[in-house]
Design a protein around this nucleic acid. Structure first.
Lengths: 112, 112
DNA sequence: TTATTATATGAACAGTTATTCATATTTGCA
DNA sequence: TGCAAATATGAATAACTGTTCATATAATAA
């Protein structure tokens, strides 16, 4: 084995964070909405907790909980302005994981 | 939201499969071993269940269970020869997910 | 047939986790 | 000060899942 256990655990933890419907919806909502193709490179949008909650149809509490998971996992960053806290994608790795996973499930559709 | 719930569920399911240490070790063991850089493109190696179990230090039963998960999820394919069943990576999406996740955790190391 | 090798399977348990609900904290404003 | 808005937090629960153990199945050889 080339990859040591520490790296395996980190990869596992990273993928676990992405492997949740609510968190995926949050991440998609943080992708730029200017052009319809959300999976192409771009700069990232900032949104506050309530706006995300409304957009994905989840409660404030749930979104707050999951944003904490995403932030601890290095998926998003935050920016406090007044009482609002704006969240945005942290880097492009997240976007790339989503893009490849998206392509993977689309390809599977052809085999069903 | 651009992405419908069906796609979200499929992405979640796909990522869940990758988000496990044992399964990640199995996938890494199925990457070609000729050049040391396991994360570059290549053609995929075939290995039987017992060989994988020995290489990653897991029981036969556990590896068999997880290979079933990986196969059902479209991550690996199998090829029966006599009593042995040879498994290999199914396509390059799996490899790409691993590569990007790997890069992501390496980058995080710089911030610790 | 019997024995052996390789793999799959099912049940059971322990540990984890997503969600909800209620409440706390923080900030801005009157 | 008090109030409202935005977000975070903690507990509790229900559902899920990775692992182990024992056993079953399949293929080969003697």
């Amino acid at each position: 084995m080339y990859i040591n256990d520490k790296v395996i655990v980190k990869m596992q933890d990273t993928l676990k964070i992405a492997a949740d419907g609510t968190r995926l919806k949050i991440l998609f909502s943080l992708l730029d909405e200017i052009d319809n193709n959300v999976l192409e490179p771009h700069h990232f949008v900032e949104k506050c907790v309530n706006d995300i909650a409304c957009q994905i149809g989840a409660s404030q509490s749930l979104v707050s909980h999951q944003l904490k998971v995403l932030k601890d996992g290095g998926f998003v960053k935050s920016n406090k302005v007044g009482t609002k806290i704006y969240y945005s994608l942290k880097d492009e790795h997240v976007q790339q994981i989503m893009k490849i996973t998206y392509e993977h499930v689309l390809e599977d559709d052809n085999h069903d």
